[in-house]
Design a protein around this nucleic acid. Sequence first.
DNA 1: TTGATATGATCTATATATCGATCATTATGG
DNA 2: CCATAATGATCGATATATAGATCATATCAA
Lengths: 93, 93
Amino acid sequence: MGQMIRLGRTERKFTAQDLADRAGISRGMLQRIEKGDPKCEIGVVFELAALVGMKLFDAEASSLARHLKQAEDKLALLPKSVRKPTKAVDDEF
Amino acid sequence: MGQMIRLGRTERKFTAQDLADRAGISRGMLQRIEKGDPKCEIGVVFELAALVGMKLFDAEASSLARHLKQAEDKLALLPKSVRKPTKAVDDEF
DNA sequence: TTGATATGATCTATATATCGATCATTATGG
DNA sequence: CCATAATGATCGATATATAGATCATATCAA
């Protein structure tokens, strides 16, 4: 993922500093993200992805919305809390 | 994204505590992620997505690898540092 | 209905990410 | 080739996320 961000950045001839500024983060942070550090705010990574024109769910761009709608609908149906079955299942015998 | 994680969780009948444990995070953290808080470690979010069987780049699962390879190849070609054009473009006159 | 359990919300202490600066290295444009 | 700008790496101070506990509420199973 970081690799693709970097690709997008260089393709667009953006300096690391430039892109960092646009995203409102430090150059060091951008470095970490491009290196693939998993301990970064997901929001920032997505922001960068957008800034360099990365299509996150690309071929399926539309499906995201579709999936989200389905998700909402399903959530409306599913039980609102997950209940663990009671362990006493008639062990008597 | 958090919404889809939640969907996957309930569909699989996982308790919030259960899933949090499996991911090695606190229940509170899972709550924030399911709520869509952008200030979370991207690694954890992806871990959760995997745990509930979310196909991140779904229809395009294979394309991720493909894209990554292309990214590597392109990066090998592109200039290794981005250079801003010198401003002195013959303003004399 | 009721009793038990999952979820939502909030707080504090602690761990840790982030910034900003700095230095060294590399690579490009001239 | 050389000067300059971009990148890589590191450090201390600070802001902030995270864990863990706790309380309240909602919701399901029996």
